[in-house]
Computed example of a mutant assay.
Amino acid sequence: MHFTHEPKRTYYVFAIMISIFLGLASRYINVLPNFIVNHTGDTLWAIMVYFLFRFIFASKSHNTAFYLSFIFCFSIEFSQLYQADWINTIRSTMLGSLILGKGFLAVDLKRYSIGIVIAFMMDKWIPSLFVKVKNKQL
Rank of each mutant, 00 (worst) to 15 (best):
F35A: 08
K110F: 12
R54H: 15
W45G: 04
R9H: 06
G101S: 08
W45L: 01
M122K: 01
I16Y: 06
R9N: 05
S69T: 14
L95D: 05
L98S: 04
Q83N: 14
H2Y: 12
I36Q: 01
F35N: 05
L105I: 06
A46T: 09
F120S: 07
V117W: 05
Q83G: 15
M94Q: 10
F130W: 12
L100M: 08
S92D: 10
T43R: 03
F78K: 03
S92Y: 06
K8S: 07
S92K: 07
K132M: 11
R111Q: 14
N30R: 01
F130R: 07
S75C: 10
H62K: 13
V117C: 09
I114G: 15
K102N: 12
F130K: 11
F51Y: 09
I90V: 15
L22A: 09
P7V: 00
S19D: 03
N135P: 00
F72M: 13
K124T: 03
K110Y: 11
G101F: 04
I116R: 05
A106V: 10
M94R: 12
G41E: 01
I36E: 03
S79V: 05
S113Y: 09
N135G: 02
Y28D: 04
H62D: 11
F104Y: 14
T93Q: 03
F51N: 03
L24H: 01
H5D: 15
N135E: 03
V117G: 01
I114C: 13
A15V: 00
I29L: 15
